[in-house]
Design a binder for these strands. Structure first.
Lengths: 171, 171
DNA sequence: GTAAGGTCGCTACACTATAACAAAATCGCC
DNA sequence: GGCGATTTTGTTATAGTGTAGCGACCTTAC
């Protein structure tokens, strides 16, 4: 039992299902899901963790595709706009949204030790931000929450960010 | 009456007072507030809004100081560690903390139209994030909240991010 | 078929940040 | 004051991230 239990699919863990869902979605909406866009989305999905724009570029090239950075960024803009991909500003990386069909504000738990990122969707955080912004008469378009720290696994191993994320010695 | 009313000083609006407070703080703690560090902090304060590292560099040079980017970044790291400056990851810019003496989690309201940034410190948001992270057994070191949207002033002028932040036409 | 709009390729470039090593300033100690 | 250790800054070079501008191509609508 976890906080993520309400997610019906974890697309990040199931690239094929996510791709099929995307195919269906774009078929339905009429928005063009071109081979390049599909390929980039697939690369992000299969990465299984946040991936940089230039890493995506490299993997495109591995598959014989000659591409320039701008091509990748254009596709990323598209996928972000379509809410299939999130951008992580603090680490300049991109990851697949776990529940693209369900519009939601997301929060990200970024482990400074192992680099893993967990997407959560906590309505309490979301509501708190909405209220805070409303008090300041600020009209929110996109609330970005990136929580830096140490994930449960790394905490268990005694790692800390201060020690460069090696197990902490008390010397 | 605003949400910021509890701030005893708004240092961003009063560079001289902020500099004096910084002098006193570093005098007291024994941490070295060198001329370069003081100069960079002053530049950030006088900017009155978020400023990029290379803009800081340029202003250093305006004052006859020859400096390389790395010098600025080193000072920024120092000022951030000392909690006198915040880094805004979404816009790659730096701004003075409004209440450096009072350790707090901050949230930022970033206007996509006029570029203004307002720092708030909403304990409800902070608590919600702390709780959410706790549920995921995640040990927080730094919660980053950058809320993109349109500030009160720009909303009043009918601006929207969709329209490239020009007043919105209903055509 | 043709015009219009969207997508992609291509070249070049701007912006953001760091590495590695040397020189200089500062601090603690005698 | 002199000396070594530490911290800060300078210097040069380079890595990493993101865009501009323009033309070709492809798709769609008429």
């Amino acid at each position: 039992m976890s906080v993520f239990a309400h997610h019906t699919h974890d697309f990040a863990a199931n690239p094929d299902a996510a791709l099929q869902a995307a195919d269906a979605h774009f078929q339905k909406t009429g928005v063009r899901f071109t081979p390049l866009r599909r390929r980039v989305f697939e690369i992000i999905l299969r990465a299984g963790k946040p991936i940089g724009a230039y890493d995506i570029l490299e993997r495109l090239r591995d598959h014989g595709k000659i591409a320039a950075p701008i091509s990748v960024y254009r596709v990323l803009d598209f996928l972000i706009e379509q809410r299939f991909v999130h951008r992580l500003a603090t680490i300049n990386a991109y990851m697949a949204c776990v529940t693209p069909e369900d519009p939601h504000a997301a929060q990200f738990l970024i482990c400074q030790c192992c680099g893993s990122v967990t997407e959560i969707s906590d309505p309490i955080i979301d509501k708190a931000i909405a209220e805070g912004a409303k008090t300041a008469h600020f009209q929110v378009s996109y609330p970005l929450v990136e929580i830096m720290g140490v994930c449960a696994d790394c905490v268990r191993e005694g790692k800390t960010p201060a020690s460069g994320c090696a197990p902490d010695h008390d010397d």
